[in-house]
Design a protein around this nucleic acid. Structure first.
Lengths: 199, 199
DNA sequence: ACGTAAACTGAACGGTCAGTCAGTATTTTA
DNA sequence: TAAAATACTGACTGACCGTTCAGTTTACGT
């Protein structure tokens, strides 16, 4: 139980890598299993040997991405003293590392396609959305606790922060990395300090 | 040339109405011409008598929606003295009138599907995106001119405002109208006055 | 009244794509 | 080394969907 299993796991890893690229570029629906098979260099049927379905493959990708994302954040959280700095750092790291979640588009598409069809798919995505919201919410809470932010409603503000970043992610698709980072920074600055003129 | 033409135009209008519902609920891809035909109560082929293609039908819908939106705004612009009030009013009117652009999801999906396939489709969507950006930008400029806002970069802030509203539109899909309006107001308040605590 | 054009339909076509299956090659186990 | 398990493939299926087309009904002009 050695050479064969190693081969198998390497193939699986190659499929995952190719699938990541194809889903990121084409989105969930437009990415066909055949595309992924060709990109990997294996047969279509082989993908169904390693993964239960297109949905199963995609959810595996999301799980993996989320795990990497969490690990990255656990590391970043130690590096910054204030929440403001942390948020600015988040922009840098988040954008440089794959332009703010390359699978986001595919994930949203997947969710919309799964709505009503795949109960399991919806459930899994719902879990991820909640975790993401809780993360943003905890960031805001941290800022309040440290006295940096006003005592705003963390649930609202978490949602708003998430919404703004998500919207920016889409809006900045035609921008270079540097321009995108600048835009995100300006946005964060506006949200932090407001745009209303003070006397 | 009377009864027949009237019938025809009524049918066309009914197709448009049904298509609006179906595209809004299902998104661009998942909405099949057959769905729309059934919802209208006509044959699939009849839709191709009145419209060139699925893309053509959808672009007609977008044009119509945009025209209504513009007319509504032209009216609203007169009703408010300050830009801050105007933005708050925008939330109310925009959300009450169909929860912030029901076709937005389908439009994004359409754009992603059209990328590389339909040059004409991309062109038309690009025009609409630019018009939308220019609109937000002019709102910000107006606020600066009246002395309400700091002299921020209008191009950036327009994009940011648009991104935030778009993100909120998605994020608030599981909220009631009242909750959504409240969330939007909190978001606008945060952007206007900031969330950083002042001494 | 009659020919013609507009409005409309049922059935089919062509293409795509997720998923299956019967079979082959390779490695492991006994 | 024989049998069994694993990794993998090519060809196929069934379903869906945008689009077309030959043909039918209906109103209009003359």
């Amino acid at each position: 139980m050695n050479k064969k299993k190693a081969q198998s796991e390497e193939t699986k890893a190659r499929i995952i890598e190719a699938a990541n690229n194809v889903f990121s570029q084409r989105g969930y629906h437009a990415a066909s299993i055949e595309d992924i098979a060709n990109a990997t260099g294996v047969s279509k049927a082989n993908i169904y040997y390693h993964f239960k379905s297109k949905e199963g493959l995609f959810l595996t990708l999301l799980d993996q991405y989320e795990a990497e994302w969490k690990a990255l954040w656990a590391e970043q959280l130690k590096r910054y003293a204030s929440t403001t700095e942390l948020l600015n750092g988040m922009i840098d790291v988040g954008l440089k590392r794959g332009f703010h979640h390359p699978l986001t588009r595919a994930a949203r598409e997947f969710l919309e396609e799964a709505w009503g069809k795949s109960v399991e798919g919806c459930r899994q995505i719902a879990i991820k959305i909640n975790e993401n919201r809780a993360f943003y919410q905890s960031l805001i809470q941290q800022g309040i606790d440290s006295g940096e932010f006003k005592s705003v409603n963390t649930s609202d503000l978490g949602r708003i922060l998430e919404a703004m970043f998500r919207g920016l992610g889409e809006s900045s698709r035609d921008l270079s990395l540097e321009e995108a980072i600048r835009l995100y920074r300006v946005a964060l600055d506006a949200l932090l300090y407001g745009i209303v003129a003070r006397d």
